[in-house]
Amino acid sequence: MMKHLLSMDQLSSADIVTILDTAESLRSVTDRPIKKLPTLRGRTVCNLFYEASTRTRISFELAAKRLSADVINFSADSKSSVAKGESFKDTAWTLEAMGVDAIIVRHGSSGAPHQLSQWVKASVLNAGDGQHEHPTQALLDLYSMREHFKDLEGLKVAIVGDVLHSRVARSNVKGLVTMGADVILIGPPTLIPPQAATWGARIGYDLDEVLEEIDVCYLLRVQKERQSEQLFPSLREYAALWGLDSRRLARMKPEVLVMHPGPMNRGVEIGADVSESPRSIILDQVANGLAVRMSLLYLMLGGRSEDGEVFE
């Protein structure tokens, strides 16, 4: 396995299958009375978060703990050395000096994990960088899709909304295209620049046109400030044209999956009833995130056990 996980570009379809298969094996740990494996005992994992996060940070923390690693949480907030003016590099070196084995980083600046990986000896896992990538989200999304559809090849996935600013979209398109899925990006051209076509996805502006053909409808979070940037006239108009409401859901295939990386804006990109419908697997995505992150830490830090006893 690779030393760092910075981008979905690094992963072949075989790598992705290994990560998802390992996640599936580790999933069973969660169902045990004692939810812990000794694999990463004595290893230290640091969550280095320069941006607010709930699910990703907690998910990584829990994943590391389930594998018996020691976990440090560092939030670059008003109480940290960052507030005193410490640079990103100095913070990285400080953590390195304390002997961490892996740094899970979230940062508002695209490429920050890439830079970090050049400064430290520890493994770096990208937990979301600017508008660049969020590879663990893409992997848990692939895992969630694979739970329902045996084969990702040929799967028709619509990714709807703000592709331009979305690291989730970038990582998902790369992962899906690698796995042979058929990806359609849907939204207004202000949110889906034509260059996105070079990723191997189709581009469409009309959600209604693709409703009947898709297997997965992946909705991206619409950030409220996009309205003030004049990327669309109003949240109301956005919801009318690209929001998934129950009327649209009714037109889709009965086995369609509705997905969302969270946090949701109910009533904008997703109707409240749609998010709670049986077709929604939004909470499964969260649960699967834990397994996928355990899988990555296991593969990247633990390696395969010599006696094969890890999973028991």
């Binding site: 960088d129 660049h132 690291r167 260059q195 990723w199």
Partner: peptide, 11 residues
């Protein structure tokens, strides 16, 4: 602004 800025997630 172009293919690369789009791929690298930079404005």
């Amino acid at each position: 602004e172009g293919e690369r800025s789009m791929a690298l997630g930079m404005r």
